[in-house]
Amino acid sequence: MYGWIWRHLPGNTWVKALLSLLLALAAVYVLFQYVFPWAEPLLPFGDATVDEQ
């Protein structure tokens, strides 16, 4: 997959590296702004309970 992306980006090596970095940052932004907040209520990590003894 990464090879396919690299081959389809325009420009020389430096431009491709910069575009790859921008794509990675955009993916992280989308994950933190939209995907993780949507998925958080569906995950069981906040349902920790302690039994009283």
Rank of each mutant, 00 (worst) to 15 (best):
M1F: 13
Y2Q: 13
G3D: 12
G3S: 10
W4G: 14
R7W: 11
H8W: 11
L9C: 00
T13M: 14
W14S: 15
W14D: 15
W14Q: 14
W14F: 09
W14C: 10
V15K: 07
K16I: 01
A17N: 09
A17D: 00
L18K: 05
L18P: 01
L19C: 02
S20H: 01
L21V: 12
L22S: 09
L23D: 03
L23N: 02
L25K: 11
L25R: 04
L25E: 02
A27C: 11
V28T: 09
V28E: 08
Y29H: 12
Y29D: 07
V30R: 08
V30C: 12
L31D: 06
L31W: 01
L31C: 03
F32Y: 05
F32S: 05
Q33Y: 00
Y34E: 02
V35L: 00
F36V: 03
F36H: 07
P37H: 04
P37I: 00
P37Y: 02
A39L: 08
A39G: 06
A39P: 04
A39H: 03
P41V: 04
L42D: 08
L42M: 07
L42V: 06
L42W: 09
L43F: 06
F45W: 13
F45Y: 09
F45P: 04
G46N: 01
G46H: 02
G46Q: 05
D47M: 04
A48T: 15
T49H: 11
V50W: 09
D51M: 13
E52W: 13
